[in-house]
Nucleic acid binder design. Sequence first.
DNA 1: CTATCGCAGCGTCAAATATA
DNA 2: TATATTTGACGCTGCGATAG
Length: 237
Amino acid sequence: MSKCGRKKYIRTNLRQMTMETIESHQDGRVTDSMAEGGSAHMQTQTGQNSIPTLAQVATIAETDESAESEGVIDSHKRREILSRRPSYRKILNELSSDVHGVVPKIEEEKSEEEGTPPNIATMAVPTSIYQTSTGQYTATGDMPTYQIPAPTTGLPQGVVMAASPGSLHSPQQLAEEATRKRELRLMKNREAAKECRRRKKEYVKCLESRVAVLEVQNKKLIEELETLRDICSPKAD
DNA sequence: CTATCGCAGCGTCAAATATA
DNA sequence: TATATTTGACGCTGCGATAG
């Protein structure tokens, strides 16, 4: 693996560790029990648990160091270990149903009916609500105000719709059709990847703001506890 | 000035997941 | 179940910071 690729791999592990930590703190459950119960996590279709535990992830990161020198772990094995989590949208929605007001909620896309401009979703974020191209989010943290170009609903300019399959005759036409389909697929995936990365960034921001909120809450509760202790058990002087 | 590093973003592939 | 969508992983590029 290249230096860059490996760096990103470790980063991914750290993200999973962070999520496990945050979610465990959120509802007081330990990570393993979350994987078992009806939480936001899910199992893959093959029945394998999609969530590596903290220890597993740490082990992965450590073993990867040695594996790099040995050149042992291939990408397939990694994929098995780091199998996919639910989408960011899903995770956030799950979290938001647990803790209202603390976690932003990603709603389904309905910008068209709500009369938003065709290409720009204005992000007026005075306090705790912000909107994205995929819908409306709420957040308690200090979210930046910015504009996100809404995804184009139709095909981008320059894309010509396919002729009906029945109209194709020669092998050359079939090849052209295959090429066109591939280009269309690549273009759609390109856009999807951009959108996915944008969602991921929002997701990370939401988690960060949530951490900030919870830290403040924690601090207040500790102070409150100290106060109550002082009241209940005054020092005998 | 040049080499190196760290980071962010992009395009692509492949697999997991969602949906019709 | 077939198809569409989503996202992790990878490799690559460009940019700014820093050391030599």
